[in-house]
């Protein structure tokens, strides 16, 4: 599996072959608070980089989740739609949002490393 990469919109992505796994970051869940609703995309949906892909809602507000990379969705994580609060527990591991078959691996190069993302969050506090 590739190194985890991060977007400015607080999504993470890992790559295995040409299949990317996308979720939201721990920092995002801390900003959101208690997650009470998740909508994940259906398999077969095409999504452009930075396109709206999923929805996450906390007790406070609804937010869109964007795809950090272009591709066709192969799977949405039904488990988190059934148990939205699980995302607060382990956002960067088991509780990914969707997987997609990517078109252009080079898009990953525009994303941040873990260190770069941590720095980005410190410089852009909510």
């Amino acid at each position: 599996m590739s190194e985890k990469k991060f977007s400015k919109k607080h999504e993470w992505v890992t790559l295995e072959g040409d299949i990317a796994t996308v979720g939201i970051t721990k920092h995002a869940t801390e900003m959101l608070g208690d997650i009470v609703f998740v909508e994940v995309p259906e398999a077969g949906k095409s999504i452009e980089k930075e396109g709206q892909a999923a929805v996450v809602e906390s007790t406070k507000a609804a937010s869109d989740v964007y795809s950090p990379i272009s591709g066709e969705v192969t799977e949405g994580n039904k488990a988190i739609a059934d148990d939205p609060s699980s995302v607060n527990g382990d956002p960067e591991g088991a509780n990914w949002f969707f997987k997609l078959k990517i078109k252009d691996k080079s898009e990953l190069e525009t994303l941040m490393s873990k260190d770069e993302y941590d720095k980005f969050c410190k410089e852009n506090p909510s």
């Binding site: 608070g33 208690d34 009470v36 906390s58 007790t59 406070k60 609060s85």
Partner: peptide
Amino acid sequence: PIQYKDGIV
């Protein structure tokens, strides 16, 4: 304050 450390729930 909208919330404290424990969170809304």
